[in-house]
């Protein structure tokens, strides 16, 4: 089957006094209805992938490689066709719900906005669809909430509105950029529930970007671990949590609360100045001599991809 989203050798660099290679050759694909989670420390380039797919990168960014969505090369589309895709077939949920909603419009109006923009068939009143969408994200009295303004609601409610807005058109690919960052556990659970139960759930593929493995574990089908601008491990979620192969994945799992907060020593290298050889070697407990000199390739072992010399 042809994958829904196919990213191949995606390279992004930011130009400046010193150009910074944020992504150095990232490749992965998402099938229809699948959830892929991109995991990694902040500053490893995971949000850049989301922005590159949506073509929302700042103007100093240089993009190479290819991003194919249903066979269309997104990087070569003109702005008009791109904005037709955005919101309609591709949707994104940003990190901070209270900033992503416009405070001067009511919830109902903001939810109807994508319908008005993207579906111009002569339906003057999109409210039925909005009501249905609100019901699906768990509001028992949607007609009541349609008249609300974002500032009247809690952050969790706003996050739910936001997910409803992004999914109201039933996009084929939904990108969630750090939806759980800075939230307390109850709200993380709420977000999790919404991501499972939004209107298009089941049909919609989800690209989930997060640093929180515990959160990702409950949602993802596939996991891609990123480190310093490249993917170091890509595997089915079940396999990954059972037996992580890359030393960095091991370290990440070790620092989870249930595993006793065992930290990975050191800190992630700056993208402007990555170490030679394997980028993880300064922090790796199993490092060998060749790790300092050679850059490992992403090896395919039984459907799992690992970037490490030590893996069979």
């Amino acid at each position: 089957m042809k994958p829904l989203l196919e990213i191949e050798k995606l390279r992004v660099s930011f130009e400046g006094e010193r150009p910074v290679n944020v992504l150095s050759g990232v490749s992965f694909s998402i099938q229809k209805g699948e959830t892929l989670a991109l995991v990694g420390e902040s500053g490893c380039g995971k949000s850049v992938i989301a922005h590159a797919v949506m073509r929302l990168l700042p103007s100093e960014a240089r993009v190479k490689g290819s991003v194919r969505f249903k066979g269309t090369e997104l990087l070569e589309l003109d702005e008009k066709r791109m904005s037709a895709l955005r919101g309609n077939e591709l949707a994104i949920i940003f990190q901070n719900p209270s900033h992503a909603l416009n405070p001067v419009y009511s919830i109902g109006r903001q939810l109807a906005e994508p319908l008005r923009v993207h579906q111009k068939q002569g339906k003057p009143d999109p409210s039925q669809k909005v009501l249905k969408a609100l019901k699906q994200v768990g509001f028992s009295r949607p007609e009541h909430y349609m008249k609300y303004y974002p500032s009247w609601c809690s952050g969790g409610m706003n996050q739910r509105f936001l997910i409803a807005t992004s999914t109201i058109l039933g996009p084929e690919l939904l990108i969630a950029d750090e939806p759980s960052k800075g939230l307390d556990p109850d709200r993380i659970k709420e977000v999790e529930r919404e991501l499972r139960a939004h209107p298009g759930a089941g049909k919609t593929a989800l690209l989930l970007i997060s640093h929180d493995l515990g959160f990702v574990r409950r949602l993802a089908d596939k996991i891609a671990v990123m480190y310093s601008g490249e993917i170091v491990e890509l595997a089915e979620a079940a396999d990954f949590f059972e037996q992580p192969l890359h030393p960095y994945s091991l370290g990440l799992l070790g620092s989870l609360p249930e595993n006793g907060f065992v930290p990975i020593p050191g800190s992630a290298p700056a993208l402007s100045d990555p170490p030679s050889g394997c980028r993880f070697h300064p922090r790796c407990p199993y490092g060998e001599k060749r790790c300092l000199q050679e850059h490992p390739r992403l090896k395919d072992t039984k459907g799992r991809f690992v970037r490490c010399f030590l893996c069979p």
């Binding site: 030393p247 065992v262 800190s267 100045d273 070697h281």
Partner: peptide, 18 residues
């Protein structure tokens, strides 16, 4: 192998006493 900024110690995972 000179550590980057902020990198001082080194430890194997699983070793609890850090």
């Amino acid at each position: 192998g000179i550590p980057d900024v902020g990198y001082v110690q080194k430890k194997a995972p699983g070793q609890k006493e850090v």
